[in-house]
Design a protein around this nucleic acid. Structure first.
Lengths: 258, 258
DNA sequence: TTTTTAGTTTCATTATTTGAAACCATGTTT
DNA sequence: AAACATGGTTTCAAATAATGAAACTAAAAA
């Protein structure tokens, strides 16, 4: 349950509709909602009136509304790295023959904003938009390595440390040590920590002032690649991340061009 | 100014940040805000805490946040026609050699969700996300033709009827008559009503039950095409709209597949 | 040192929200 | 036909959150 009063609650409801990934009826929402029926109903009315949700009277279903689609455009073009990074990811994926992920940090979780696989090119969004844990993914650890102080401790405190595989880092201290190592090397690995049989090399995307914007990874199955082989790609992946960071910084802070 | 209490106000503030299309400082927002300074400040704090905005401490700027980017994905994939329609637009643009627009109705305005020009292919989003008037655009009129009753009267009441060109429909009655004609023909035109020198043919995208999902247009400059030439495309554009409608309906309401 | 600027916090007052209970419309069962 | 069930919708006294002028804070400028 959120803080931030009424606005926080309304956003919870919006997110609950989004989580269904399909049009959803009032009763289905009510089953899973922590709010009383009248309260939930009123939030749905408010969000629909505001255009954030839409209501289809025939089937009595709620879905994402056009005002949200419009805000989505603004969010995607100004705060997601995906538009800027797209050509760089395509190139890296073509060169390596493996899957490339682009991610940003959403509170304490990983938000995958793009995924490219040159051998199996898919349309925009088909894999983007997924959320994953930070403590046991390459991109997650690469980003956490450049979060500092209280923000880092808050993020660590919110990790579940669920052990997905024998190699999952399952406690805060192991994670902190790993983040120090990543920072020292400049890149990190997913050593089958999240999914068995899946490994990757991951690097942070930083501004010139070393502020973390996101992370990039090259991922493959252990049947086809290994950590050693992926490590040989480190210079190339770091270079790609550097160029994305430069483009992002130039776009967002044009005054630094002077 | 919105209704819907505190949530409506918070969404106004979110939209105000989005409208800048770049990171923005508190003072810049305050200059244009109808809210008192403390009220605006608190909304920005709330939206930032909730992840809908992000705050960059070094430059003291607000921008779209990762939670909105994540909701953006949900909105885009479930409520925008763009993902489904993309291959159809590419094909239509390639065949006609002209620019194809895809739009949906956002309250009483047109939201362009995609734009394709086979001769000048641009990356995702570069032109999508724009908002335009409904009363004097092809797609706008094609959509309004399938809005009925009070919803139509509300939408008409919100049009500015500003006369952009000599051919702009500049009063409600002219618009209503045009909508009747569009519905009779099944398609409409922009006869240089919005921009001089720009014409188009536009068709609605409907479900099987004739519920309006959006609209599609083929647009060109009068230096290269004419309304007559565009009208020859009507069967092909109608077919494309029909297929998009079928795909959208199959996706959103899979139970109709049985 | 003083003044200005942009952002941030306070708290008495006002406005909005809350949510159990009741209501409504439609469909199902007896 | 009447009673019951279901899913959605509305009411309103009480509770809670929001409001916004004024004051405060920190940094920059004069």
């Amino acid at each position: 349950m959120s803080g931030d009063g009424t606005v926080g609650k309304a956003l919870d409801v919006l997110e609950q509709v989004a989580a269904f990934e399909r049009p959803v009826r009032f009763g289905e929402l009510q089953e899973k909602s922590p709010y009383p029926k009248a309260t939930l109903y009123r939030f749905l009315q408010t969000l629909t009136n505001q255009g954030m949700l839409s209501y289809e009277a025939e089937r009595q279903t709620y879905a994402m509304g056009m005002r949200l689609v419009r805000l989505a455009h603004a969010a995607w073009t100004t705060s997601s790295l995906a538009p800027i990074a797209r050509p760089f990811l395509d190139q890296l994926s073509a060169e390596t023959g493996e899957t490339v992920h682009l991610a940003q940090l959403d509170a304490s979780q990983v938000l995958y904003v793009d995924k490219r696989n040159a051998k199996n090119p898919v349309e925009m969004y088909s894999q983007a938009g997924k959320v994953g844990p930070a403590y046991c993914t390459g991109v997650g650890k690469a980003m956490l390595a450049y979060v500092e102080g209280e923000a880092l401790e808050r993020a660590i405190a919110q990790q579940s440390f669920h052990r997905f595989t024998p190699t999952t880092l399952a406690d805060p201290q192991s994670l902190r040590e790993e983040l120090v190592a990543i920072r020292a090397r400049g890149y990190g690995f997913d050593r089958e920590e999240h999914e068995p049989g899946i490994v990757c090399i991951a690097v942070p995307i930083l501004t010139k002032g070393s502020r973390m914007l996101g992370a990039l990874s090259v991922t493959g199955p252990t049947s086809r690649t290994s950590l050693d082989q992926l490590e040989h790609l480190a210079p190339r992946v770091l270079e790609t991340a550097k160029r994305i960071g430069e483009e992002a910084e130039a776009w967002r802070f044009p005054e630094t061009r002077q």
